[in-house]
Amino acid sequence: MNEKEILQQLYESVLQGDSAKAVEAAQQALDAKISPLKAIEGGMTPAIQEVGDRFGKGEMFLPEMVTSADAMEAALEILEPFFEGDEGAKKGKVLIGTVKGDIHDIGKNIVIALLKVNGFEVIDIGRDIASTDFVDKAVDLGVEVIGLSGLLTTSLPMMRDIIQILDDDGVRDQHKVIIGGGPTSQEYADEIGADGYGETAYSAVQLCNQLLGIAS
């Protein structure tokens, strides 16, 4: 296969969410001495952008976006050891979950998929997660951003607690905290001292870009 064909393979495998094919194509790229940066920018990034676009237009659905993001991640894992400098590096690490007592996770899953599609490394901590677990995990993994999702009125106090714990543990300045979901609002974010509120999954991406000083 020539370079063009390999890049096309990468493009298609990510678009189709085929992890096995994406890994194979990434390996072929390395074997053919295509630079990792070129493999990413020439094959994978356009594919994942296409996925994001189609999702926005309602032509692609959550499961497809999730499997595409997975295929992209799988291929990146193959390429990563060969990066030079910070080429291909992720934009930043984001930890996301739904707070204690709340099992709503649809919105959270969409936020995660869109952040991944937009180049963030995302750790999904799950739903119904204890406040202390959010903080401990964030510190352990050294994430830049903590995203809190909550759909119940009873979820609001949990968000305040998490910020309080970050404060008490003396690590508040090391993590940005963003919140989202029905009962949350900009006013509530201000009240509890969160760094941002996002009404939609798209605004979650904008917020992360903004907070990490990345031009979108």
Partner: peptide, 18 residues
Amino acid sequence: GNPAWIEGREIRPFSPNE
């Protein structure tokens, strides 16, 4: 419907107030 708070206090899941 859902009361937004109870006895003027926030409602926390798994709490006595809940």
